[in-house]
Each structure stands twice: as structure tokens, then as C-alpha cells.
């Protein structure tokens, strides 16, 4: 038994002229959650496809639960579960039939496959839709079924490739709750996401990936500490007061703030600035509708690391 559930070293993958992975190292301790964070096209999915034995790397090696993903692919497949937009269910089958089929493929008896399918459908609140073709499912239901499908074999290691992309906020929170529950029961999770709050909410460690390289890694807190700043945001109730507010912030924070979208924001301010700004605005009689001092978000981290902001683009379900 190795302490590392997933271990990858120098993974390289090229598709024609494009280099999808340019030497990626990853390490996920057993029972923990690694968030692989990056924009579209950063190489996240390629990494997951290699680690789930779907494609072979051009260079480098990877071990999952101690098994080499190329030489010992069949053993790797026995310990993993894969949920991604490309690893989908059969749209022409019902939810029950899909899960039953996977149970049968994993060698369960008819009775076992059926009871496992039923219990997963109940657990993922898909009872009512169990006998409907999955093409009629909503986006959130489809993701829950995808996740259920990857759990039929009770995998020790679970890959979640952008599990909530395209979901509405409520369905997203539901899926997060399900993922937390899996993690709490001891499953090791590799999660890819382009949502910084998702990595922050679910992951023990984060690896930031961009252009096929891991450009930073560590705990969410450590990454935020690397940027090490707090941002003051003030939104005057009356947009006409923007200039006045900007002047106040410039004076008290000692730097020219950014004015955008009806808000004034200043980076890297000390903790004493906020009360000072409150007192001054009160004295000047300027009403504000928003006034916060927030710690660095992972957006800030990404901006600091790559020099460009993350713009999470809405992607279609089909790549």
C-alpha cells in the first residue's frame, strides 16, 4: 500500500503540433483531494485521461494506487472511477439500465447489479427518473447520474473532470455536497475545475495548471498567502460619488485605486484602512451600498501567477 494514491512524474502529451502537457508532476496522498485548477485548454483533461488509462503519455510515467497507468492499465481501471464530460452514460438507456449495465460489466450478478443501481439512484435522488431515458434528464440530474455511474464499482480513487461546469448554482451546491460526502468516506479525489471557488471549497491541495505546466501548487491558504494582500472594495450608492470615494481611498490607502463597474477597489491595503475609510465617508456624508475588505481570492492568485485573469468561459457539454 502506497501513501500516494496518484503519482505522476514528467507527463508529456502532444497532439500533432499542440503540446497539451509539457512535463506535469502530480502527487495526491491517499484520502485527500487535489484540485487541478486552470483555464480551458490548460491540459487538465489530458492529465485526467492519462491517469485514467484512456491515453498513454508521450513521456513521463504515472502510478495510480501503485500501478503503472500504461503497463498495468487493467489494474488501474479496477480502482478508479471516472466522471467527465467525455465519459458519459448511454442517453438511450434509463438511469437504472445504465447503472445496471455497469454493475454487470463489473462482474456483479443480476440481483447485485440491480440493488446497487437502485441504492445509488436513491442516494443521488434519481428515484423518480430511474425508468426514464437519460436524454430526458436535466443537466444536474445528468451529472448526478454520471457521478453515480463512476461509483458503481466503489472506486478508491475518483476523477472528477469539471463536474459542475455548466450547472446552475443550486445543482452545483448539491453536487459539492455529494463530493464532500465521498471524500469524508475516504475516497481519494482528483478534481479538475476552472472555478476557483470550487477548488477552494473542495480541495485539500491545489495545483494550478496553465499551458500544460503546473505553475504553482499548495494548500488554498498557502496559495492565497503567496499573493498576500487584502483588497478593499467600496461601492457608493450614488455613482456620482465615485470620484470622491476614489480620492478618499487614494489618500488613505496610499495608492491609486481601480475604478470599474461602479466600484472602487484598492489592492494591498493594511487592516487599519477600512475603519479610516468608514469614518471619512461618514464625515463626508457619502452613502455606500458595498464596503468590504477581502482576503486574496484564488482569482487574484491566478492573476498573480499567470499575468492574466481567469475568464471562466461557459463550455458546452460536448467538447
Amino acid at each position: 500500500m502506497t501513501a500516494e494514491a496518484i503519482y505522476a512524474e514528467g507527463l508529456v502529451k502532444r497532439f500533432g503540433e499542440t503540446t497539451a502537457l509539457a512535463g506535469v508532476d502530480l502527487s495526491v496522498p491517499t484520502g485527500s483531494v487535489l484540485g487541478l485548477l486552470g483555464p480551458n485548454g490548460a491540459g487538465k483533461t489530458t492529465a485526467v485521461r492519462i491517469l485514467s488509462t484512456l491515453i498513454a503519455p508521450d513521456a513521463g510515467r504515472a502510478r495510480v494506487a501503485g500501478h503503472d497507468v500504461v503497463r498495468d492499465a487493467h489494474r488501474v481501471r479496477q480502482v478508479i472511477g471516472l466522471t467527465g464530460q467525455y465519459a458519459s452514460v448511454d442517453e438511450k438507456l434509463t438511469g437504472l439500465e445504465n447503472l445496471f449495465l455497469i454493475g454487470r460489466l463489473l462482474g456483479k450478478s443480476r440481483a447485485d447489479a440491480r440493488s446497487r443501481a437502485r441504492s445509488l439512484l436513491t442516494r443521488f435522488r434519481l428515484d423518480d427518473a430511474a425508468t426514464r431515458a437519460t436524454k430526458t434528464y436535466s443537466g444536474g440530474m445528468r451529472r448526478r447520474l454520471d457521478l453515480a455511474a463512476s461509483l458503481v464499482g466503489q472506486p478508491r480513487i475518483l476523477y472528477l473532470d469539471e463536474p459542475t461546469t455548466g450547472l446552475d448554482p443550486r445543482a452545483r451546491l448539491e453536487l459539492w455536497a455529494l463530493i464532500r460526502e465521498l471524500v469524508d468516506s475516504g475516497t481519494t479525489v482528483l478534481l479538475t475545475t476552472q472555478y476557483l471557488d470550487e477548488a477552494d471549497a473542495l480541495a485539500d491541495d491545489i495545483a494550478v495548471i496553465d499551458h500544460g505546466r503546473v505553475i504553482a501548487s499548495g494548500s488554498p491558504e498557502a496559495l492565497k498567502a503567496r499573493v498576500g494582500s487584502r483588497t478593499l472594495v467600496v461601492r457608493p450608492e450614488n455613482p456620482a460619488h465615485l470620484d470622491a470615494v476614489a480620492a478618499v481611498v487614494t489618500e488613505l490607502a496610499g495608492a491609486a485605486p481601480e475604478v470599474e463597474g461602479g466600484r472602487v477597489s484598492a489592492a494591498a491595503v493594511g487592516t487599519d484602512v477600512l475603519p479610516a475609510v468608514v469614518r471619512r465617508l461618514d464625515r463626508d456624508g457619502i452613502a455606500v451600498s458595498e464596503l468590504v475588505l477581502r482576503g486574496a481570492s484564488l482569482d487574484d492568485v491566478f492573476l498573480a501567477l499567470t499575468g492574466q485573469p481567469t475568464v471562466p468561459t461557459e463550455t458546452d457539454d460536448e467538447p
Binding site: R75, V79, P155, R180, D184, S185, G186, T187, D200
Partner: peptide, 28 residues
């Protein structure tokens, strides 16, 4: 963002996904 204790104990009872210790896996 925080996980409550109630969450955790409920999850512990949801033993569906608890990974069983795997003996030597078949290679093919």
C-alpha cells in the same frame, strides 16, 4: 464552505463508497 459535524457523521454512515482493502488485483 465549512463541513459540519452532522455532515461528517452522516457521511460515515453512508458506507457505500468506503474503499474495501483490495487483495492482489488480476492483471487481465
Amino acid at each position: 464552505g465549512a463541513r459540519s459535524d452532522a455532515d461528517r457523521s452522516n457521511a460515515a454512515r453512508a458506507d457505500e463508497t468506503a474503499a474495501p482493502p483490495a487483495p492482489e488485483l488480476p492483471a487481465r
